[in-house]
Design a protein around this nucleic acid. Sequence first.
DNA 1: GTTGGAGTGTCAACAACACTGACATAAAGT
DNA 2: ACTTTATGTCAGTGTTGTTGACACTCCAAC
Lengths: 169, 169
Amino acid sequence: MDRRPSSPSTGEALLFLTDEQLRQGIEAMFFAYRGFTADPDRILGDMAYGRAHHRAIHFIGRAPGTTVNNLLNILGVTKQSLNRVLRTLIADGLVESKVGRQDKRERHLNLTEAGRTLEQTLSDAQRARMRSAFRDAGPEAVAGFRTVLEAMMDGEMRSSYSRLKDSAS
Amino acid sequence: MDRRPSSPSTGEALLFLTDEQLRQGIEAMFFAYRGFTADPDRILGDMAYGRAHHRAIHFIGRAPGTTVNNLLNILGVTKQSLNRVLRTLIADGLVESKVGRQDKRERHLNLTEAGRTLEQTLSDAQRARMRSAFRDAGPEAVAGFRTVLEAMMDGEMRSSYSRLKDSAS
DNA sequence: GTTGGAGTGTCAACAACACTGACATAAAGT
DNA sequence: ACTTTATGTCAGTGTTGTTGACACTCCAAC
């Protein structure tokens, strides 16, 4: 049912997307995201940390010296939410916060040695799954994967994503 | 840095995935998932419901007459967690629960008319974004997207996913 | 037929993590 | 001086996950 053939009307290859195809995309996204977070969640479950800590550590490791405000924009949470997480990470010696030199209002965040170690542990698990998925799927599929995901982002997130991508030249 | 050329050792086109490439995949997944849930979340924010209600409604709509236990396996949460959500949905007349005829331990779940309406509203928003992303990315990219996501799932989830996919022939 | 274990669903209490709102401090910018 | 920006904190609330305890139903062994 609902299986129309693609009848191109214009020169452009217009995609005829049935609700069923879109639904499958939605469900694929749901199940895959569960797999995506499963490994770090398992590791974090044993500690006193959760997914929020993982995200903070990831992006601090990714953009060392970033400010609280910048991190806030990337993560898309409120400062109260982030602060709770950062407070524990700093208290536990995984993250250090230094007052800015030019602008003393800012705090620049960096991972400590211990923080980098945890970041590695968590990322290794997640990267292993991503690597395995990429290998299984092949290079063309990976390119498509990234194209669709980029198209699915909101504008601001796409900016954050690109900025991070380009910064790691 | 960290930019090794692909030095194939076997006949297979071995993929050489740098940590940087994997990291970008991870971040793409993170940002895209935010976009993916943004629209339904916005709609649900106005009501007394959250993302968990959306998921329940989605999969009940997808597999009418399903049992609580089956839904549990699909969603991957505890039955207590699901029950709280189901209770409110039933109380609000969006879902109806009928005792099984053969096995009276089971409850079969179905959307009411009101439930179907809400499901449509939520799905429409999410499908619109998915459709737009799929259109922008093109058919080859979409195929790759699905391939990678499937490879990223855990085994059980892949089963659930396939079962749902096939049931909608 | 009764009993005990497995399957299923429900209620209660707690933890993690998001939110809003209000407020304090310090440093820039005008 | 006044305003804005960046950050941190306290208090309160809501959603959604968890465990623990318990009731009902089925089925199979005794």
